[in-house]
Write a protein that binds this DNA or RNA. Sequence first.
DNA 1: TACATTTGCTTAACGGTGTTAAATTATTTA
DNA 2: TAAATAATTTAACACCGTTAAGCAAATGTA
Lengths: 199, 199
Amino acid sequence: MGSKERIQRLKEETRNNILDAALQIAQEEGWQALSMRKIADAIEYTAPIIYEYFANKEGILLELTSRGYILLGAKVEAARNAHEHPADQMEAMWIAYWDFAFEHKEFYQIMYGVEMICCEVKKALPEAERVSRMYDDVIRQLITKVEPDEDLICRKYYTFWSIVHGLISINLVQKGTNEEMNQHILRDALKGIIRFIND
Amino acid sequence: MGSKERIQRLKEETRNNILDAALQIAQEEGWQALSMRKIADAIEYTAPIIYEYFANKEGILLELTSRGYILLGAKVEAARNAHEHPADQMEAMWIAYWDFAFEHKEFYQIMYGVEMICCEVKKALPEAERVSRMYDDVIRQLITKVEPDEDLICRKYYTFWSIVHGLISINLVQKGTNEEMNQHILRDALKGIIRFIND
DNA sequence: TACATTTGCTTAACGGTGTTAAATTATTTA
DNA sequence: TAAATAATTTAACACCGTTAAGCAAATGTA
């Protein structure tokens, strides 16, 4: 009865097709244009069969969000591994974050609220937690204090995150701003925070 | 024929009722739950008459966005006028911005992308421009350089805006974070940027 | 006053959405 | 071959934004 596995594989394939189709539609027309019927069209089925693979539309979005975090995690990790000193790591990691946001706009949008799923559900994603832990680790090394206050680390993380995310959001919504200037702002702000991280 | 004006007044009243109803629904159920039929129910009419006051749903959102900017403008102005020195003004103005975002979550959401109208349209809003000009003015005073480089002012403005907006977005999406810590982060970051504004 | 016109508003409809239940077709099992 | 099961579709529900047609009341005109 080897066909059991073959069928399993086929099922997994259509599951992936659904996700791929959803992402492609989002890339081409934006998340607001994504509909179950459009996905069904793309995978050459009718809409109801999607519900055999996902509980609902939000289920698809959640899975894509998760995959986005995995992708981001890989990028951030690579950036960190490319440097020795924590200060360099920190800067590279945030620039990697920045690059990810613009290389994968659609992912970034579902991951960070520009079009959002319920926050409670997303907070529980382990893939998301992994990313933030990587940042925390490096921040911990940057702080020279002997006993690294957990609250301080969290605060610094949010400071970094806020400015990067804020700059990205502003650019995603109000596009048409100067690309070069953004890089300037980003690097300036990062260096500033890193420099005074022990305040 | 004084009834002409009375009718005009009545019309203006229902127009306001539409906007009020829309805002209230958003406050109670979120923007995603706002529908033309719900607005119609609230003002005790049927949906089509709304189109005699607004071109479409986006028209309502745009008008509310505009009103949001007027409200924000007043708050920012008041914060500025409460202080003498530019450095104090700057800090107060951004804290006013922050407070506005949480006092009027729904306004902030339509104004800054969390749920968004087309950016091109919004950029043209004079009410929005007025707010950013107020910030620019104070930044200009903060910079000690004799010839205030226009590009530098713009960059500093975006730096401020990014961190404040970023922190707000993160809190609006991932609520449940520590209120006190946020204030700490905000004040720290603001003071940091102000301190090194001439870099 | 009687008729015509305009105004205010509603009902009905179109094409779209997410989602569910029933019906149908194809496949596997006995 | 017949029965059972799985895969897929059709039809439907309740909602959405929006538009066109219809109706009824108020207004203007003779």
